[in-house]
Amino acid sequence: MYKMIKASKLLGLFLVLSFVACKETAKKESASTTEVETAEATYNIPDSWIQKRVDAANKRLSATEAGKVLWSAMEAHGGLENWYSNGYFSFHFDYKPLNGKGIRDSYQTIDTWSNKARHNSITDPSNTYGWDGEEAWVKAKDSTSFEYDTKFWALTPLYFSGQPFVLDGEGVNLELLPEVEFKGTLQKVVKATYDAGVGFAPDDYYILYINSETNLLDAFKYIVSYPEYFPEGGHAPEKITVVQGTTTVDGIVLATGFKTYWSAEAKDGLGEYITDITVSDISFSPTVEDNFFSKPEGAKVLND
Rank of each mutant, 00 (worst) to 15 (best):
A63C: 06
G251V: 05
P231Y: 13
H92R: 11
T260Q: 13
I210S: 12
Y261S: 08
T144C: 10
K23N: 15
E75A: 13
G199M: 08
G171E: 10
I210D: 07
T112Y: 15
A31F: 09
T34N: 10
A219G: 13
N173K: 11
S121I: 07
W113H: 03
E24W: 15
S212W: 00
I277R: 01
K139F: 05
A219Q: 03
Y273K: 11
W153L: 04
V166Y: 12
S114M: 10
S126C: 04
A140D: 04
N173S: 12
G102Q: 03
K28P: 00
T214Q: 01
A201M: 05
T246G: 01
D281M: 14
V20P: 05
E213S: 11
G169W: 00
A236C: 00
L158C: 01
Y84N: 05
R104S: 02
S283I: 03
T64Q: 02
E135Y: 09
E175I: 10
A66V: 07
K59Q: 13
E40M: 11
K259Q: 12
L15V: 04
T278R: 09
L155C: 06
D218I: 02
A117Q: 05
Q163K: 14
D195I: 07
F182W: 09
Q187A: 00
P296Q: 00
D268K: 10
V54T: 12
E232F: 07
S48Y: 07
M74P: 14
I252W: 05
Q244C: 13
T112W: 14
D142E: 11
W137E: 00
T38H: 12
G298E: 02
N120G: 07
N44H: 13
Y107W: 15
Q163P: 01
N215G: 08
L302W: 10
G184H: 13
E170I: 05
I240D: 04
G67K: 03
S106G: 15
H119M: 08
G251H: 05
A73N: 05
H92F: 12
G79E: 01
I282N: 08
L61Q: 08
E289R: 12
H235E: 11
R118Q: 07
S106R: 07
D281P: 09
R104E: 01
I5F: 14
L208F: 11
G169C: 01
Q51N: 07
F258T: 08
G245S: 07
G102A: 05
S225E: 11
Y194L: 02
L70V: 01
L216W: 06
L302K: 10
L15N: 12
E40W: 14
T38S: 11
A7Q: 13
V138A: 07
L254S: 05
A136I: 01
L11G: 03
G12A: 00
I5W: 08
I210R: 03
F93L: 01
A76K: 09
P237H: 02
G298L: 01
T156V: 09
